[in-house]
């Protein structure tokens, strides 16, 4: 099985939602600003509940915020 990777468009969505700051988003979904930063940099994949909360803040389906990309195993 290849390496799994979850991408997100949080930064873009924040920009198009009145240029919401990381701090504002963090407060709305109940995490720290550092967690939002880590997610945007691809260093952390959120739990399912947190993913849904973020999608709810932006009022978009989950698939518009997060996408799943499986890299091919070349072995």
């Amino acid at each position: 099985m290849g390496k799994r990777h979850i991408n997100n468009t949080i930064r873009t969505l924040r920009f198009f939602h009145n240029e919401m700051t990381q701090e504002q988003l963090a407060e709305q979904v109940g995490v720290t600003r550092q967690t939002i930063i880590a997610m945007e940099k691809g260093k952390y994949s959120p739990s399912l509940e947190l993913a849904f909360r973020i999608a709810l803040v932006f009022n978009v389906p989950l698939e518009e915020v997060f996408s799943y990309e499986a890299e091919d195993d070349t072995r």
């Binding site: 109940g30 995490v31 720290t32 550092q34 967690t35 880590a38 952390y44 959120p46 739990s47 947190l50």
Partner: peptide
């Protein structure tokens, strides 16, 4: 120059 706001510091990632 603001008062420090200590909230629930540990989230799921922590």
């Amino acid at each position: 120059s603001e008062e420090p706001h200590i909230k629930g510091i540990q989230d799921e990632r922590d």
